[in-house]
Design a binder for these strands. Sequence first.
DNA 1: ACCTGAACACCGTTCAAGT
DNA 2: ACCTGAACACCGTTCAAGT
Lengths: 199, 199
Amino acid sequence: MARRSEHSHDEIKRMVLEASETIISEEGFAALTVRRIALEIGYTVGSIYMVFENMADLILHVNARTLDDLSRALEEISPAAGLEQTVVDLAKAYLNFSGSNFNRWRLIFEHQLPKNAEIPSWYQRKADAAFYRVESLFRQLNPDLPEIEIRAGARALWGGVHGICILSLTGKSAAIELSDVESSIILLVENFLQGWKAR
Amino acid sequence: MARRSEHSHDEIKRMVLEASETIISEEGFAALTVRRIALEIGYTVGSIYMVFENMADLILHVNARTLDDLSRALEEISPAAGLEQTVVDLAKAYLNFSGSNFNRWRLIFEHQLPKNAEIPSWYQRKADAAFYRVESLFRQLNPDLPEIEIRAGARALWGGVHGICILSLTGKSAAIELSDVESSIILLVENFLQGWKAR
DNA sequence: ACCTGAACACCGTTCAAGT
DNA sequence: ACCTGAACACCGTTCAAGT
């Protein structure tokens, strides 16, 4: 034991992240422990601290990958006939992603960084990237509005879509069918845009 | 020690809940441990298991009290001139509550019950109660709509309000002023209702 | 240099033993 | 009967020691 050098640090990093994602997805965040990850990748606890500062740092990187996956899922949505329909399609894709990657998706919003920690800018950029499609659609939707209002509108609606996903998927408001959630989202998006266009 | 009988079980229960709320509010959920609660109320760890099944049960009761406080805060909002304005006022009150009771409010949505646990019906009723005002306003707003659509509309909008609160308060989308969040909420509510009325 | 694994200071939960 | 507190099986994190 010791001095194995079978994998580079980058490789170990990737192994840790992939193992973490599997554990989170299959058993939930509570099941994620250093010892468990170590077992899964065939190293010992200490090794994980070679490639990540601590658990918080590890989770930040797990979340970064989830944000990348989310951005990719939204980028894959091709523009529909109308701008409004594209917004609806994006919202559906967001719901779909949050449903299929529920535990990983939750973690993005639930994990609070230790006390006075700053969000690193490379992470913030990934978070903003997931917003990009919606924001640019809002710009096309109402090109004459000042940039700040466009961003506010996109943020308001997207916050709304997010909230419906959260409330329904965490099942706090009675048993709701997924099809009903989709209806709620379409309801929100269409009614909001109805009002928005009239500005 | 032992056999103190200074407090009834109901009193100890209340002491545990109040100590828990203080710890959560001031230091966050991560600081809540049985040992810490025991220290705070002047009993030992074992005592807490006399009055609550386990930590999950304790948190459920903490959340129940938060839901009660939230319902009360919303009930205090008196009807404004128009129905629309009342919805806006309720949304503002919701934002205000989530801001002033951030850590307690977060916990309602973040705490996932152990694997196959059911949400008790007494708890579900409290969760529904917080929805009541919004739902009845939607009924007044559009009395001819079938009940199921009214509920869907209320849920869609309230999910939206909730989402904006979450996204802005957890600060995942850049630094946002609280006044801007209020603007976002007003934006969402007004635009949504604009579309909703036209149904 | 790379990695181990024992050690430390914590957790939640239980339950025999004290009064 | 009421409550204690030691014991158990876990945590995250560190770091001297092995190869």
